[in-house]
Design a protein around this nucleic acid. Structure first.
Length: 334
DNA sequence: GAGGCGTGGCA
DNA sequence: TTGCCAAGCCT
């Protein structure tokens, strides 16, 4: 299939059937594209939309974001996960304001040096913000190519990325790449889905190798990943009418810089308040919450219940504290 | 270059 | 309930 033929097919389909009303598509604003692309890394569109809306209300411009405090940024990002992205986005805004007079650069070389912008996001910003002929390769694109050409490469093995990038660059059109790139993502997300793809609605059905060979459900190939372990975690709950003791987590590791119940290495000699389970990408947490007073070091604060919305909390911790507040305490006085 | 890094949607 | 996997990046 010629690059022109594939581009025409995908852009024609995108115009008629693709997603053209997503909130970050309304103005093709480079700042909007930057924010959305960082949020969309490993995160579904439906999850991102409300975060993106709140983000633009709070930080309407890249200058507003650059001058925000780290706490404001983390509070707004709470619940979205992969928190390093928030720190990267904050640092990216500051770099663009300082080094590029607040104008997001267009070149791949300059974009690549901005925190949080890797190979995919370089292409996405060039394509979506500037309509430049830059290739993108993400999970959607790899799955679509793997099926279209019946490729045997495992899509979750980083050493195979070069094959997909080579294909993506070969097929990237010189004109109208914004729509072509969007079409690749839309096709992957809505038609060429991982499970139960809608081949009857696919504009590429006649040329899809996987479909001809009856391999749609066997592709893309994936390298088997090993089972994730379970770890125990011990958290201390110290609650009074004056609030709950929280501790800011270190900048590395899980939940960086978020506020959390103080975590200790071993179970204390105390009363168990509750347990909870939480699944991360790479391990399961068997959480224990003990009624105990944490050792007060410099990173702990007692935070009133009505002020909990003002700090960034990990999703499972926020749920626990909501339970706590609904059940008792805090309501006593204030 | 393999593993760390979140959370939720959806079968 | 469980498992899969998502508009990846960084070290």
């Amino acid at each position: 299939m010629s690059p022109e033929a594939l581009a025409n097919c995908i852009t024609g389909w995108q115009k008629a059937k693709g997603r053209n009303d997503l909130p970050w598509q309304l103005h093709n604003d480079p700042y909007h594209v930057l924010v959305s692309e960082l949020m969309l890394q490993q995160t579904q569109v439906k999850t991102v939309i409300p975060y993106f809306e709140r983000w633009l209300q709070t930080f309407p411009t890249i200058e507003a974001l650059a001058s925000a405090s780290e706490d404001e940024v983390m509070t707004l990002w709470q619940g979205l996960g992969y928190y390093r992205r928030a720190r990267n986005l904050h640092a990216a805004a500051q770099k663009v304001v300082r080094d590029y007079q607040s104008e997001i650069p267009r070149s791949a070389a300059e974009l690549k040096e901005i925190p949080g912008i890797g190979p995919y996001t370089v292409g996405a910003i060039r394509a979506f913000a500037f309509d430049a002929p830059a290739a993108i390769v993400d999970g959607n694109v790899k799955r679509l190519f793997a099926r279209l050409f019946a490729l045997p490469y495992e899509v979750n093995k980083s050493t195979n990325d070069r094959y997909f990038w080579q294909l993506a660059e070969h097929f990237t059109p010189a004109r109208d790449n914004r729509r072509f790139a969007q079409g690749l993502l839309d096709l992957g997300a809505t038609i060429c889905k991982p499970q139960q793809p809608l081949c009857a609605l696919c504009p590429l059905a006649k040329v899809c190798q996987a479909l001809q060979l009856g391999k749609v459900n066997a592709l893309p190939k994936r390298q088997q990943k090993k089972a994730i372990p379970t770890r125990k975690g011990h958290f201390l709950l110290d609650v009074s009418a004056r609030g709950i003791v929280l501790e800011q987590r270190p900048a590395s590791g899980i939940w960086p810089t978020l506020w959390c119940l103080p975590e200790v290495a071993q179970a204390p000699d105390a009363q168990l308040w509750t347990r909870f389970r939480h699944t991360f990408s790479h391990y399961k947490l068997d959480g224990h919450v003990w009624l105990a007073t944490p050792p007060g070091n410099g990173t702990t604060r007692r935070i009133a219940c009505h002020q909990l919305d003002e700090v960034g909390l990990p999703a499972p911790i926020r749920k626990l504290l909501q339970q706590l507040i609904a059940s008792e305490v805090c309501n006593q006085q204030d």
